[in-house]
Structure formats: C-alpha cells, structure tokens
C-alpha cells in the first residue's frame, strides 16, 4: 500500500518506533518504558467456509455457507526478548494463527502489529518485506516444506534473494548451514537425500539466513522421530539464545513449550483459554483443558 512510505534503509530504520504509548492496547503487560513488544495481536479472528469446498463450489455470490471459526478473538503479546509457546490440540487453530501473524493470510477481523507497525497481508511481496526481514518461520513437515526441485543451497538462499539482503549470499548460506550442524557439501544436494531431522535443520537454516529477530516455529518437531526431537529442540534453544531471537513456538505438546518458552498460551477451538508464564501454567493450571494437556505431557522431561 502506498500509505506507508518505505524507509530508505529498512534494516536500520524501524518505523513507528516513536509511536505514542497511548496508542497501544491497555492489556499489554507491564514493561520497561520505550520497549515496544515484538508482536501485539488484538481481537484476531479467521474463519473458513465449511465444508472445505472445491474450486467449483467456493462462495457463490450472495450464497451463504457455514463457516468454521479457525481463530476466534485472539489477543496476545510477544514482549521484546521473550519467547511465547502456543499449545493446543490438532485443529485448534494454531497454524492459522501463525499464517495470520506472518501476513500469509488475511484475518476477518482484528489487528496484528509487529513492533508497532500494522501487518497487512498483501499480494505484492514487497509490501511485507520489512516484516519478513525480521520474522521467519519453520514449518511442521520438513518433507513438505522444502521444494524437492531445489538444492539445499538454493533453498537456504531464497530469503536472502527475495528480501534483497545486502550480504554475500554464498557465504551466508555456508555460515547458517554450519550453524545448524550440516556439512558444507549439503548445499549442492537435494532435500530428498536427507533424513527428517536434517531436513528440519535445513528449514531452520533457511529461517536464520536473513538474520531475523523473531523465529516462529509451527510444530517444528512434531513430525520428527522421538530421538531427533530433543536435538532439534536443543538447536532451537541454542540458536535463539545465541542470536537473542524472539521465539513463537507452536506445539500440541506442553512439554516442548515448557522447554523453550517463558510465556505460554493455551489454545482450544480457535480461542486462547489460558495464558501466562509457562512455569505458572505448569504448576497452577486454572483451565481444565490445560490440566488435560498437562496430563498428556510426561513424555518429554521438563528441563
């Protein structure tokens, strides 16, 4: 949109950092003055037509069809330097929420702000370049999320090229591949030559490449074998600590969130039913649904 003039140096300039504090939602948790939360989400809702209609039946003009409320009136905040876990069973709307946060889908209502600036999904990729330079994602299925026709090097370089990152792309690719523990010769191979855990390392390398401030993980270990889950979680923990990354970690497993996140929100049927510091949620869950989730945990030791 032409409303927002692009700053000449998007990496250095962070727009609206001088926004008056009074503009912000009152529900924001107390913080040091001058620190803008990374994400502020208010009243976010998204529904999809039901049943999942094919291209033929999709919304006739005037025709009304039942809709499923995938995300319902979600409000949450990711303070700077913090990590937020989003827990909920399959189908509770976690992935939808992630797509909305990333500006990959348009909400029916509600607002998303990243460091004070409104996130609006757009067909033009450059409209959200400022957000993508800062916020990168690791998806759930490491087989599906890597293009089988591209080499690992091309996959990891994609955000560097798309976001016009002003850096030697080849060197950066090598650097992040090493950072996630992959051999240097991985860049010339194709994804199908790698195991699930290694593929997820490739996806993490891609997310890290443009030096984001926030990493979003949509169930990044759910599709992995038990034996590699801990390794990938440790890697995520190390990387977020080393680069001081904000983290939004989605999982259906409270144990995973407990391991990496200081804040947690529990999602059920599109709504956030409980949220707070992870420790408090674990020791004094108030919502029965949280308690049910807790009972399902002891698979991963909380450390």
């Amino acid at each position: 949109m032409t409303v927002h003039p692009k700053p000449p140096h998007p990496t250095s300039a962070h727009p609206t950092s001088d926004r008056p504090a009074s503009d912000r939602p009152a529900s924001r948790p107390a913080q040091g003055p001058g620190t803008i939360p990374l994400f502020e989400v208010a009243g976010l809702s998204r529904s999809y037509p039901l049943p999942h209609a094919g291209w033929r039946a999709g919304g006739r003009p005037g025709g009304r069809r039942a809709r499923r409320q995938a995300v319902r009136d979600v409000t949450l905040t990711l303070p700077a330097g913090s990590s937020l876990g989003i827990v909920g069973e399959s189908g509770s709307g976690k992935s939808t929420l992630v797509r909305l946060l990333l500006g990959l889908d348009r909400p029916d209502s509600g607002t998303i702000r990243y460091r004070g600036r409104p996130v609006r999904a757009s067909h033009r990729s450059r409209d959200l370049r400022w957000l993508r330079r800062d916020v990168q994602v690791v998806l759930q299925d490491p087989v599906a999320s890597l293009d089988p026709r591209l080499t690992v090097g091309a996959i990891v370089a994609e955000p560097l090229e798309c976001l016009r990152i002003d850096e030697d792309h080849g060197a950066r690719v090598e650097e992040v591949l090493a950072a996630v523990g992959l051999p240097a010769d991985a860049r010339d191979r194709f994804p199908h030559a790698f195991s699930g855990g290694q593929r997820q390392r490739i996806a993490i390398a891609r997310a890290l490449a443009p030096r984001p401030r926030v990493l979003v993980g949509d169930e990044p270990v759910s599709a992995l074998d038990m034996s590699v889950r801990a390794q990938i979680l440790d890697l995520l923990g190390e990387l977020t600590a080393a680069h001081r990354l904000g983290l939004i970690l989605v999982s259906h497993d409270l144990g995973v969130v407990a391991r990496l996140c200081d804040q947690a929100a529990v999602m059920r049927a599109g709504e956030i039913v409980e949220r707070g510091p992870t420790a408090a949620l674990l020791t004094h869950p108030t919502h029965p649904y949280t308690r049910a989730l807790l009972d399902a945990v002891p698979r991963l030791p909380i450390g």
Binding site: S125, V137, S145
Partner: peptide
C-alpha cells in the same frame, strides 16, 4: 493447484517470494 497448496510454496512466501518468483522457481519446475 496441488503445488500451490504445498508447504514449500507457503515457506517461499514466508521467505519473501512474490508471485513471479514462485511461478518460475517452484510452480513450473514442479
């Protein structure tokens, strides 16, 4: 339609790829 719905196209969009690039790099080869 099948390829457009894949996670790697979603990941490409999250990486900042526009429609043209997605068509050239992901859709056509696949």
């Amino acid at each position: 339609r099948r390829v457009l719905a894949t996670d790697y196209v979603l990941a490409a969009r999250a990486a900042g790829a526009g429609t043209g690039r997605i068509v050239r790099r992901h859709l056509l080869p696949n």
